[in-house]
Design a protein around this nucleic acid. Sequence first.
RNA 1: GCCUGGGUGGCGGAAUUGGUAGACGCAAGGGACUUAAAAUCCCUCGACUUAAUCGUCGUGCCGGUUCGAGUCCGGCCCCGGGCACCA
Length: 864
Amino acid sequence: MMQDIYQPTVVEAAAQALWERDGAARSSEQAPGQKYYCLCMLPYPSGRLHMGHVRNYTIGDVITRYQRMNGRNVLQPMGWDAFGLPAENAAIKNRVPPAKWTYDNIAYMRMQLKSLGFAIDWEREVATCEPRYYRWNQWFFLRMLEKGLAYKRTATVNWDPVDQTVLANEQVIDGRGWRTGALVEKREIPMYYLKITAYADELLDALDHLPGWPERVKLMQANWIGRSEGVEIGFPYDSGVLKVFTTRADTLMGATYVAVAAEHPLALKAAAQDPKIAAFVEECRKGGVTEAELATQEKKGIATTMRVQHPLTGEALPLWVANYVLMSYGEGAVMAVPAHDERDFEFAKKYGLPLKVVVRVPGGAAEDARSMAQPVISKDVVLCDSGKYDGLDYQAGVDAIATDLAAKSLGQKRVQYRLRDWGISRQRYWGCPIPIIHCPDCGDVPVPDKDLPVVLPEDLAPDGSGNPLAKYKAFVDCACPKCGKPARRETDTMDTFVDSSWYYMRYACSDNDAAMVDGRVDYWLPVDQYIGGIEHAILHLLYSRFWTKAMRDMQLLKFDEPFTNLLTQGMVLNHIFLRKTAAGALDYYSPTEVELKHDADGRVSAAVLKVDGKPVQYEGLGTMSKSKNNGVDPQALVERYGADTVRLFMMFAAPPELTLEWSEAGVEGAQRFLKRLWKAISEHVNTGPAPALDTAALSPGQRVLRRQVHETIVKVGDDIGRRYTFNTAIAAIMELLNAVTRTENITPQDRAVKQEAYTAITLLLSPMVPHVCESLWTALGQPGSLIAARWPAADAGALKRDSLELVVQVNGKLRGSISVPVDAGREQVEQAALSEPSVQPFVQGKTVRKIVVVPGRLVNVVVA
RNA sequence: GCCUGGGUGGCGGAAUUGGUAGACGCAAGGGACUUAAAAUCCCUCGACUUAAUCGUCGUGCCGGUUCGAGUCCGGCCCCGGGCACCA
């Protein structure tokens, strides 16, 4: 007899013990079947899993289990992105060394992942903070240095003048340091860079050969790389030539001034001579370094007394210093054509600089420079007031001007990228040390391979000001590998994006301490399916692609792209509630502490705190986070409902790419479904064994149910395997269960059809809710363990239909429906539609203009 | 500011290639069972009109293409993600 109450705790413990015993999640290069590498983005060990993790790893597990049922040799690994800022913050707050905090978190989160029943091969686990992992960061960095792919130059960073510390962008709040409240400044410091721009063209072009990536991610990456063809133009001045880059060389005759960034050498030269300019340059040093901040600040500038010559006319143009010119793009200088550029236009209007119209729309007249309300920026233009270039279109104008500039050695065509090289130095403790030694005599000396890894001391505790490594003599003091004299070890560590740029390769060979990767990498990679948050669409994914190509060019692997298919999941959101305290601070309240009041229409009208009944402010939806106090602890849910219910709700609530709003009520709905399924199957099996199915002897009702079973097999396979719409797969299975339980249960063949249906439901549902399905499989009398079972195949005979339902429209409006034989001809369908009683009133007395027949769907009668 | 998605009942969502808008589930209301409660089961559930409809309207807003538009095109509004040192 099968237990008639669903007990998730019992069921899940049994299933997990069974999988553990059989090593069900272990992977081997020798196992049969075509390899399938299913990878989820590795978590940062922040302490506990959050719902975003649960969503991410459930999606990966569903795909893993589905592919395994389809005969693939699947690898699903897991690891920890274990270096990073939060460990240092926790250390400052709790005085626990980052290493201990991190390893404790990993242990807890590993337990959580296991309790959710994910089929992860734990033998390949990697933590990026382990020396046996990060030594290969260091090793490969040295190879890049040898090849000229890594180099050193200065970079602009956020500087907290009180703590004397570099701040992460996240640590700058409203232009002030998060701990000191001091106004943040920009500061130039030396930094190591990786030359990702050397791969800009390949990174861009290869996007066209990634059909398994979402269009939006490819588009964002393409725009991020930002390849533009243009002309580099030189503006001579008394002691040199000012270079600018422009994509609009056709408008060169309309340039009325030039502008340079505050950090530009000419700006600094002007500042040295004029205190007002020096003050402006100093003002530009205030504030943070993010592009968003730079782009939204008010456009400001200051005139210098310097002049440059127009390269074609020789006209003297004034030189301005402007905060809207970015030192990091192009040459840090622009030619300003206010009549044909948004930013130049706004700037010129503000400072009363002249406009000169030099292009017009084809067929139209040139706009009057004095009255124009907005610049003409289209490239569909004809040149005018440009002397010999008049009448040329955009491309011809660019070509002619570029040719003339080249003849004077004052310009040439050039490709410019928005993409910048990747600065990897971080003035942080909890990261991978950069393997460089600074010698007073020999300069920057790479640490020899035999001395790798440069091990990070794990027992230091940062205090918030500066990098504790720099104060730790045992680490800093060393001998120069070249000359042996006392030297100083580099104390900067690497950007954690370095760690996550190749971890997925290490899973293939995490036991190999003699090499970064070995031949197994070419077996498992590229990753067949990568799954992670949309927030990583650009940086992590682009760095990983770059890193792969760099490794390929050093003959370490044989593939060009790391991820064949990419699924970007949406974020998990929850409501945010807060109160402002008298002191002005914000107190956030968990949605579980808040009671919502609804108006008569069911809309939320007010929110009050349960403990005091007084109102709280509703701040809308936001990603779950500790700071907003709106996270939901997955562990509490697993304990209350079981892992299967949590997994089922996650997959059912929304398609993976959309944001998901948290709802506890929905979780109960998921649990209800599993209970209903359990009850239905226990009633079925407790009646005794079902007889064999005789497909030739089925009643019409039995045939209808059996057709739905096989239609559902087709749909769920397509939804999971191709569309990744797990929500619609689950909905179809729910419909099937509803149909089975509503069908009568009288004859032996009724029971035979139901046995087939319940077996199919168990198989179809198993990737989503594997524990409960394992029990149901056994209860249904199926041999062996479900984890070894194959995905069901639909029976073509069961899918056959004799007649079709077609919808009938008149002028596009639904008026009725007809049933026609599957092999009915067009005329028969038209006749049936016209004679349908519910359609007749709308057709009578009118002229039938045409009849549109969409086979298998509808008939539209067009009348007048 | 720039790049990129999204907006459909009270709510999450479905409608896969331009072809029945609202599948499936949640919440709500009504009923059955029960001494009672919970659980479970059944019914109703976009708006308007109506005795009831097979009527009219309805997929953020405005306009267009089409026999037919949630889906395609143009213009707007609002919300989310990213912007290079959060991960």
